[in-house]
C-alpha cells in the first residue's frame, strides 16, 4: 500500500512541473506572474509535507504574496505581453539546459536517499540544535531559536540586506515622485517605440533614418516622426502608466 504522504508528494510534484512548463509556454505576462504565484503556493504546500512549516509560512506570505504584488506592479509600469522567441534563439539554451541537466542527473546516485536520517546533512549540527534548544533557549520551536538566537547576527545581516534593497529601489525609482515620467535623450534623440526593430519592420524604416530625421530636421520632421510613433504604439500595445 502506498502511503498517503507519498501520493500527496507525487501530486504536488506533478503540479509543480506542469506549472513550470506552463510558465515557459505562456506569453501574457499577467498569466506568467500569476503562475509564478501558484508555483510558490504549491512549493509552500510541499514544504508543509516536508516538515518545514516555518518555511511554508514564509514562502506563502513572501513568495506567493509579496513577490507576486511586486511583479504585478512592475508589469503595470512596464509591459503586458512578451514577444515569442524565434526557434534559432531557442536551440542554444535548450542545448545548455540539456547538458547541465544530464550532468546533474548523473550526480543523483551520490546523494543521500530521500528521508535518510543518517545522511551527513542530517546527522551533526542540526540535531545538536534540537538537543540543546530546550535547555538553552527554552522555546519549543527550534527554527525560531536558531534564527533569532544561535544565528542572530546572520538574521541581522539579512535585515541589513533588505534595508539596502529598499534603499536601492527608492533610488532607482526616484524619491521625488517622477517615476515613470523621466525620459533619456541619448544623442539628443528621443527614444520612442517607433525606433524599435519591431516597429521598423512595420514601417520599413531603419533606426538610422528615423534618428537622422529627428536630430537633423527637427521642425519639419515632427509630423513625419509622429506618424510612425503612433502606429508603433498601436502595434506594440505598450502599457505605460
Amino acid at each position: 500500500m502506498i502511503p498517503s504522504v507519498l501520493i500527496l508528494d507525487i501530486a504536488i510534484m506533478a503540479m509543480l512541473v506542469v506549472v513550470a512548463f506552463a510558465i515557459v509556454r505562456m506569453r501574457s505576462l499577467f498569466a506568467i506572474v500569476m503562475l509564478q504565484g501558484v508555483y510558490s503556493l504549491l512549493c509552500a504546500a510541499w514544504f508543509v509535507s516536508l516538515d518545514a512549516v516555518d518555511v511554508a509560512f514564509t514562502e506563502a506570505a513572501v513568495g506567493a504574496g509579496v513577490s507576486t504584488i511586486l511583479m504585478l506592479s512592475a508589469m503595470l509600469l512596464a509591459d503586458r505581453q512578451s514577444k515569442p522567441i524565434e526557434m534559432r534563439r531557442q536551440l542554444g539554451p535548450i542545448l545548455v539546459v540539456l547538458v547541465t541537466g544530464a550532468a546533474l542527473f548523473y550526480a543523483i546516485p551520490d546523494m543521500p536517499a530521500f528521508g535518510a536520517a543518517n545522511s551527513p546533512a542530517n546527522a551533526y549540527v542540526g540535531m545538536d540544535y534540537i538537543d540543546r534548544t530546550a535547555d538553552e533557549i527554552h522555546i519549543p520551536n527550534v527554527v525560531t531559536a536558531v534564527l533569532a538566537s544561535y544565528r542572530g547576527f546572520d538574521t541581522f545581516g539579512e535585515v541589513v540586506v533588505i534595508f539596502a534593497a529598499g534603499l536601492g529601489v527608492l533610488l532607482l525609482l526616484g524619491l521625488n515622485g517622477n517615476a515613470g515620467k523621466w525620459r533619456a535623450r541619448p544623442n539628443g534623440v528621443n527614444v520612442s517605440s517607433a525606433m524599435l526593430p519591431s516597429a521598423q519592420a512595420a514601417t520599413g524604416e531603419s533606426v538610422e533614418s528615423l534618428a537622422n530625421k529627428q536630430s537633423t530636421e527637427i521642425p519639419p520632421a515632427k509630423p513625419n516622426a509622429a506618424k510612425p510613433k503612433k502606429e508603433a504604439s498601436k502595434a506594440t500595445k505598450g502599457g505605460r502608466s
Binding site: 514564509t58 546533512a121 542540526g126
Partner: peptide
Amino acid sequence: NPLPHVLILTAIVVGVATLAI
C-alpha cells in the same frame, strides 16, 4: 533537520529583496 529550514528562511527573504531590485 531544522538547519536547512533556517537557511532557506533567510534565502527566501533575500530573494524577494533581489527581485525588488
